[in-house]
Amino acid sequence: MKTPTILPCFLLVLLLSSCSSYLTSSENVSNARNDYEKILVVGRSKDNTARIKFENSVVSQLAEQGLNGISSYAENAMVDINKKYSDSELVTLKKRLMSNGYDGVIVTNLINTEAYTDVVPGGTSTAYVPARVGRFGRYLTYYPVTTWEPDQLKSGTKYIFESSLYRLAEKAGDNLQWVGRFEVKDPSSLEKTVNNYATDLTKALVKNSISNAN
Rank of each mutant, 00 (worst) to 15 (best):
S60V: 12
G134D: 15
L201M: 14
N175A: 02
Y128W: 12
C19A: 15
Y73I: 11
V59G: 01
T147G: 03
K203L: 11
R167C: 07
L93R: 04
T124D: 03
R44N: 11
W148Y: 14
Y139L: 08
V41T: 00
D87E: 12
V133S: 13
G104Q: 00
T108G: 04
A77F: 13
L16F: 10
F54L: 08
Y139V: 01
K154S: 09
E114V: 09
E114M: 04
S30Q: 09
Q152I: 10
V79Y: 13
A131F: 12
K158A: 08
D35C: 10
G101V: 05
N195R: 15
E37I: 07
L201C: 03
V120T: 11
K94G: 10
Y139G: 04
S71K: 13
E64Q: 12
T147Q: 11
T141Y: 15
E191Q: 15
Y128C: 00
V107F: 05
A198E: 03
Q65Y: 07
I210P: 00
K203T: 08
L40R: 02
L7M: 14
S45E: 15
G104S: 08
E170V: 13
F54A: 10
Q61Y: 03
I111K: 12
R181G: 04
Y116G: 07
L7E: 04
V194F: 05
L12S: 11
S57R: 06
S86C: 10
L205T: 00
T157C: 07
A169N: 14
R132V: 04
Y166Q: 06
V184P: 03
M1A: 07
R33Y: 00
T113E: 14
A198F: 11
